[in-house]
Amino acid sequence: MKPAPFEYFAPASTDEALSLLAEHGYDAKVLAGGQSLIPMMNFRLVQPSILVDLNNIAELAYIREGDDGGLRIGAMTRHRQVETSPLAAERAPLIHVAMSKIAYPQVRTRGTFGGSVSHADPSAELPALSLALGGKFRLRSQRGERWVAAEDFFVSLFTTVLEPDELLVEASIPPMPPRSGWSLQEVARRPHDFALMGVAAVVTLNEKGVCDGARLVFISAGDRPIAAERAAESLKGQAPSSKVMEEAAEIASMQEIDPSSDIHATAEFRRHLANVLTRRALEQAFQRAAETKQEG
């Protein structure tokens, strides 16, 4: 399990990295935490001839408050930094709680936010949560810079809109509207495994306690994070009750997600789990929304 030969660059700035990518494009891969890339290289599933290591670029690792009151996270921020950040806990609690579900501490001290999002594993938490929270990503190349919304970013299995000469440099996570509640429910074989099935729910109540908006995004349920839009729509205008939650769970698990079968679970079991977890997630999210309403 040794990688095929490659050339290695370790630029100290984003500009330098972008110029290397501009030069080498398709032959190059960027190395962030290496938690996904290095195993793939050792298995020789990918054989980039050039590796551009981002680990010396200090300017890409930060957690800041956004102008909108949300969170800005630099691409090279380690999972562990987010996990231990009070600001992240306050501004994006959904992302904050997810961190402890990603692998184990050794992996989290290396793995990065930008790496996880760029890798676009449909079983990973951060792509799904970015989508659930309406996040967006800043992409840069020597040609310029663009912001792409999470819902436009993920194309298919391990594929995003990132061009070969582009770097994801930052994620922006907006704050949730007032009277919102959230929940992340997962089933994983072992706590540190990728989830067999997972769902993130974000719901908002109006002043009368009726659902004003909802998002349900599923993990391990298709070739990218899957937003169950019809299920979410079915909740709108409804006062939360087990009946509406069950209906939403039914729509999402039977009609909207597209899980596959593998050695760990059949598609049937995954749909069953999606149903169970959606109900649990909605219950908790509505509960939390109701509590913020009382506080507010």
Partner: peptide, 8 residues
């Protein structure tokens, strides 16, 4: 066994 097999 496994969760999946137990479910079955």
């Amino acid at each position: 066994l496994s969760p999946n097999r137990l479910f079955e």
